[in-house]
């Protein structure tokens, strides 16, 4: 199908980093089943470095591809870099997403931020809350 780029299809067909990390240092889940996509990111963090990352996704082709690409982009990177990852960077790394699928890359960015936030919370590390998505009042469903 020509709906997606070759890159998207590659990451969709052969998703990288699928799975679960037991006793992960940070876990972030965003989206909801009602809208048709949920992403869950698991992080293993050592000395502010993401030493391992896994994901689980319920969603369309671009949601799975966005999760896969996003995990590749932050694997082995310091937290500061992972926090700076934008949905745009994810979409660009996939050679673009159709307009009505851009929210999938937004979900990937938010899932990573949420997992890092979870890590901060668990370890009592102070952080700037305004830099994180407000998932309680998530507008994802009405925005795509």
């Amino acid at each position: 199908m020509a709906l997606y780029s070759e890159k998207v299809m590659d990451h969709f067909r052969n998703p990288r980093n699928v799975g679960v990390i037991e006793n992960a240092d940070g876990v972030g889940e965003v989206g909801n089943a009602k809208c048709g996509d949920i992403m869950k990111i698991y992080l293993k963090i050592e000395n502010d470095l993401i030493v391992d990352v896994k994901f689980e996704t319920f969603g369309c082709g671009s949601a799975i591809a966005s999760s896969s690409m996003a995990t590749e982009l932050i694997k082995g990177k310091p937290l500061s870099e992972a926090l700076a990852l934008t949905n745009k960077a994810v979409a660009e790394a996939l050679d673009g997403l159709p307009n009505h699928k851009l929210h999938c890359s937004v979900l990937a960015e938010e899932a990573i931020k949420k997992a890092i936030q979870d890590y901060y919370e668990k370890n009592g590390i102070e952080y700037d809350e305004t830099k994180f998505p407000d998932c309680e009042n998530c507008s994802h469903c009405s925005s795509h």
Binding site: F12, G36, F58, G59, C60, K101
Partner: peptide, 26 residues
């Protein structure tokens, strides 16, 4: 239960099966 229709269609298409779904994504 537990899966989304568009990814199902794409993977079936990879196996040569043309189908359709009523998911929001499709």
């Amino acid at each position: 239960e537990g899966i989304e229709g568009e990814s199902l269609l794409l993977l079936l298409d990879d196996k040569g099966i043309c189908a359709s779904s009523g998911s929001a994504c499709t």
